[in-house]
Amino acid sequence: MTPTVARLAPAGRPASLLRGLVSAPFLYVAAALLLSAGVLLAFLVAPLDASGLGFTQKIFYFHAAIAETALIAFAVALVAAVLRLVRSAGPPAGLEVAAVRLGLFFSGLVMVTGMIWGRAAWGVWWAWEPRLTTFLMALLVYAAYFVVRGSIDDVQRRETVGSVYAIIAFVTVPVTFFATRYLPEGLHPVVMTASEARMETSMALTFAVCTLGMVALLAALLRSEVALAAGAGALDEVKDLLEER
């Protein structure tokens, strides 16, 4: 007699779970190589900043790359939420939650590295200037996403409300992104614009490598998170069926 777990979770499901986990290593390796190259480029190739920031400008390469990655993660959550609401066979269930969670993680990292850099460059840990304030707003709004989800017991309703919230919360992302550009009186510099990169080529290359590395890391983490969520979901289903037996 075949054990129930083997009958209810046939070979296809663990295999797809395994595929999800084993395809992530490529992204992890790519991220590790790119981020290592980014560190080497930042300290060995990119010149010292001549605008007065000096050596502390080295923080920029990771700080800005992490900021871009956080915004990309929130954009992924937006797309996943829209697809989930519009299409019945949308993206994997855990993608939206994973994207918000990782977006929050990278946002927190941006805040901490930004505070260190702010202390070095401006002499203060925090300043209520447009970029910092709007980024803090985005972080708090997305943190509330989990509060909202946690307050709803019904699974279907929780998923729907969560998706709607993720769409609404994305409003904070363009506000953050354009805050510095349209409110230039702040302390935060605008380094990259649509028309030009206000830095040397080697600096731009270093920043690009670091950003690519962080995005690859985000993709790898998203894959792992979705695979883990799928595994936990499948396990809950099997457990429920066993309890009904």
Binding site: F55, T56, I59, V112, I116, W117, R119, A120
Partner: peptide, 8 residues
């Protein structure tokens, strides 16, 4: 400062 940021 740079070391602290990278360590974080």
């Amino acid at each position: 400062y740079v070391a602290a940021a990278y360590a974080v």
